[in-house]
């Protein structure tokens, strides 16, 4: 039997204006337009969002856990990027 399987899409929803699109799950569809329509039926049955993105799962490039050490650790030694690094007098500390 010709078992073609529908491609997988990842779905991202902006739940209200001003917020980021967040990954909510995935679904199968033949093309992006259809994926967008189905995102409405699958992930917006309760009006959960004001904007939807869909992207083919196969188009996502992901980091590998094994690489994460070399990927991220060098960032650990830069505490000056964090606000808490700078001690200020309490009078102006809510900066």
């Amino acid at each position: 039997m010709n078992q073609h399987s529908l491609p997988l899409f990842e779905v991202f929803i902006r739940s209200k204006r001003g917020l980021d699109h967040r990954h909510v799950g995935s679904l199968h569809a033949e093309d992006p337009a259809q994926a967008l329509d189905y995102a409405r039926d699958v992930y917006l049955r309760r009006s959960e969002g004001v904007s939807v993105w869909v992207v083919r799962s196969s188009d996502i490039t992901a980091s590998q856990e094994s690489d994460m050490a070399s990927f991220c650790d060098p960032m650990d030694d830069k505490p000056y990027r964090h606000a808490t690094h700078f001690k200020l007098p309490k009078e102006v500390d809510n900066m």
Partner: peptide, 23 residues
């Protein structure tokens, strides 16, 4: 019942992350 179908779909999708297709 539509929700149940949706829940099945969420779970199939979650399971597909392990490399096994819904089919």
């Amino acid at each position: 019942i539509q929700d149940e179908g949706g829940h099945g779909l969420y779970l199939y999708s979650a399971a597909e992350t392990l490399g096994t297709s819904r089919e």
